[in-house]
């Protein structure tokens, strides 16, 4: 159960910046009343964040990656079961890339 000083400092730095961005968005919005356009943007932000994160990551695996991401979304839409959808997508990618 070792805990080295440099590792501890590295973990603390990661924790600090992660909390800063987690709380930062909320803190900024609480401090300033956003313009009407930004308020409308916030309504579309959730889905846009996910899509813009998923597609480049999936595309890095080529067509099998994109197909596996679509499989996860469709499986979730049809079954409503998150774990099942993830396992299906991983298995699909595994099958298409041949492990």
């Amino acid at each position: 159960m070792t805990l080295r000083a440099d590792v501890l400092v590295g973990i603390l730095c990661m924790a600090l910046v992660t909390y800063a961005v987690r709380a930062g968005g909320f803190a900024a919005l609480r401090s300033f009343r956003p313009p009407r356009f930004v308020e409308r943007m916030l309504l579309h932000l959730p889905g846009s964040i996910f899509i813009a994160f998923i597609l480049p990551g999936a595309a890095a695996h080529g067509l099998p990656g994109l197909a596996a991401a679509v499989a996860a979304a469709v499986a979730m839409r049809l079954s409503g079961r998150l774990t099942l959808s993830i396992l299906l997508a991983v298995a699909a990618l595994w099958g298409m890339k041949g492990g």
Partner: peptide
Amino acid sequence: PLLFAGLASMAALVATLWRGPGDVLPW
């Protein structure tokens, strides 16, 4: 492929945020 589990999780979650054709343009 197991490392794909994180992205697969997000792909499944985004399906729960779909509200209808109005999401096509922003997404």
